[in-house]
């Protein structure tokens, strides 16, 4: 098949008929990505905090978890949760099994990133907060977490895009996301090359802007642009007072 055959091959796929499939698949892909990422971030943060705990009894299970799930292929986790668990009476929907697998897997990686970020904050920060009478919760929320987020952002961004791409593995449990739709269209049109090239291009078209925006977010925060409304309001008030006006 020559390159020009590939080009004319694109025209043999009735894309208009499949626009609905592709749109739906894209929506499913994004739903899996967002739900799994939120879950993985929460579990990852919990694991990170556990691994930084004083008590060995708390640290150990979290460390064990992280090592296990970092060293098992995602596909194996998907198969265990979807095909394996029903034999012990746990029957999950495709969506639940898909999200659970991604959460379990990515939480392990995110916990490593979060742990390093939190541990990377100088002990003097905690001391200063304590010496100012800030409680443990406030210290974590206003001093440790904002700094840790900045440190964790680059690694977390990489993981987000990685997770988005990994949702394509859910084709193995027919999750109705982009890759599953691609398989369907390819089998109906017998145009595997053209269809998979287009689907790959769609993944790229989603991932590239996402990773660029996350990069922009990193640079914006690095440049010291305050993102929260409260911070902007306080800075505005300070500037007004400094300018000697009555706000």
């Amino acid at each position: 098949m020559s390159p020009s055959d590939v080009f004319t091959g694109f025209l043999h796929v009735p894309w208009g008929d499949y626009a609905g499939n592709i749109g739906w698949g894209l929506a499913r892909t994004l739903a899996y990505t967002v739900a799994s990422f939120l879950g993985a971030a929460v579990l990852g943060l919990l694991l990170a905090l556990m691994r930084l705990n004083r008590l060995r009894l708390v640290r150990l299970p979290a460390a064990l978890y992280t090592e296990v799930f970092k060293n098992v292929p995602l596909l194996a986790i998907i198969f265990v949760t979807y095909f394996g668990l029903p034999s012990v009476g746990i029957k999950l929907s495709v969506f639940a099994a898909g999200v659970l697998s991604l959460v379990l897997f990515y939480a392990a990686y995110l916990s490593e990133i979060f742990r390093a970020a939190i541990a990377g904050i100088h002990s003097g920060q905690n001391e200063a907060a304590q010496a100012l009478g800030l409680g443990r919760g406030t210290t974590f929320g206003h001093v440790v977490l904002p700094q840790a987020l900045r440190l964790a952002l680059p690694g977390t961004n990489t993981m987000f895009v990685d997770l988005l791409k990994s949702t394509s593995l859910l084709v193995t449990i027919s999750a109705a996301e982009l890759m599953t739709q691609a398989q369907l269209i390819a089998s109906e049109t017998f145009r595997a090359l053209e269809v998979y090239l287009v689907i790959a291009a769609i993944y790229f078209a989603v991932c590239y802007p996402v990773s660029q925006s996350l990069l922009w977010l990193e640079r914006t925060i690095q440049a010291g642009v305050p993102l929260s409304r409260g911070r902007r309001r306080r800075l505005r008030l300070a500037r007004t007072l400094l300018a000697g006006e009555t706000p």
Partner: peptide, 21 residues
């Protein structure tokens, strides 16, 4: 070593504990 909060501006460093402690 000062131990200022590096993610906050000078004025916010002075504001934080006033508001939250």
């Amino acid at each position: 070593r000062f131990n200022l909060f590096p993610h906050l501006t000078a004025v916010e460093n002075v504001v934080l504990a006033q508001m939250h402690a």
